[in-house]
């Protein structure tokens, strides 16, 4: 063990600066959201709330549009991720069998669709012709299989020891039962990783809402947030029955940002653990 010297302190200092750069903007927004509206009128940097107040959150929760957008995003995230996993696991499992006739054709297909995207307008016209415009399914079905995740999952299945499945077959396990009773249970860590990849993408989904949804009652959270935060459009928060609360736009914007971030913070410990694993898995084998 070497002794800590000036060199190490230099490293600690640089890393501490990196942390400060990352955390200060987040802390500032959190502090603004929790401050008394008058205290944020001319916003200086805040690292803690000035005159702690829940007014901005009261305003946000009293706003039906924001709560509804939250609900839509929860729906997209939960239902979308379940469908993602169903499709990705079954597809990846089939593609993981090297003896499958036609395998190389299917893999070429996956690689082509992964790398050559028809683009925004043809994608839009397709969703339109399928009758999905202004439907929550437009934010779930396009992208139900992510080719990158499919290949990641396939690589994982390919590395499972063949003997386990063979032993189960000798014991009379059918092909389908094999998947649900053997393959999925031993693959749970990889499935969790990929489920989280999908889940975060759904939670942060912005473009599908922007492209496919014009009815603002169906907007997901990120699209509504865009109008609140960037277009300074507090009118998006229609119907808020909050005339008794004196409100400052910066205050409400900060509270909306925090409101949309809390679920990410709650699952963050899992995200950090599993995402790192997924990235390393993709890098090492992909």
């Amino acid at each position: 063990m070497q002794k800590t010297n000036a060199y190490d302190y230099g490293i600690y200092l640089l890393l501490a600066i990196a942390c400060v750069i990352t955390i200060v903007p987040v802390l500032h927004v959190l502090s603004v959201s929790l401050s008394e509206p008058q205290a944020v009128y001319r916003s200086n940097l805040m690292l803690y709330p000035r005159q702690l107040s829940w007014d901005a959150y009261q305003y946000v929760f009293a706003t039906p549009t924001l709560v509804r957008a939250f609900g839509i995003t929860v729906f997209i995230t939960v239902v979308g991720t379940m469908l993602n996993l169903l499709f990705t696991i079954t597809g990846a499992y089939a593609l993981s069998k090297r003896t499958l006739p036609g395998l190389s054709f299917f893999m070429i297909l996956v690689i082509v669709v992964m790398n050559f995207n028809a683009g925004l307008i043809p994608g839009y016209l397709n969703v339109k012709s399928l009758g999905l415009l202004n439907s929550v399914w437009a934010m779930i079905l396009p992208g139900v299989v992510n080719a990158f995740n499919l290949i990641l999952m396939r690589n994982f299945f390919m590395d499972l020891p063949e003997e386990i499945e063979e032993a189960a077959k000798i014991d009379g396990c059918s092909d389908l039962a094999l998947i649900f009773r053997i393959v999925i249970p031993i693959s749970l860590p990889a499935i969790a990783t990929i489920g989280l990849f999908y889940g975060v993408a759904h939670w942060n989904e912005f473009f599908k809402g922007l492209f496919y949804i014009t009815d603002n009652r169906l907007w997901p959270l990120q699209v509504l947030l865009k109008t609140i935060v960037f277009d300074n459009n507090l009118n998006s928060l229609v119907g808020a029955n909050t005339s008794d609360i004196l409100i400052e736009p910066a205050n409400v914007q900060a509270a909306s940002i925090v409101f949309a971030t809390v679920p990410i913070v709650i699952v963050y410990p899992f995200l950090q653990k599993h995402f790192v694993k997924g990235i390393v898995m993709g890098a090492v084998k992909g």
Partner: peptide, 27 residues
């Protein structure tokens, strides 16, 4: 012998057809 694997692959193939291949026509 692999028929179950094709059944499992079908949803993924159908998805790629509907949301990746069909849009090529729009090009």
């Amino acid at each position: 012998r692999h028929r179950w694997l094709y059944v499992l692959l079908l949803p993924t193939l159908a998805y790629f057809f509907m949301f990746s291949i069909l849009p090529y026509y729009g090009l």
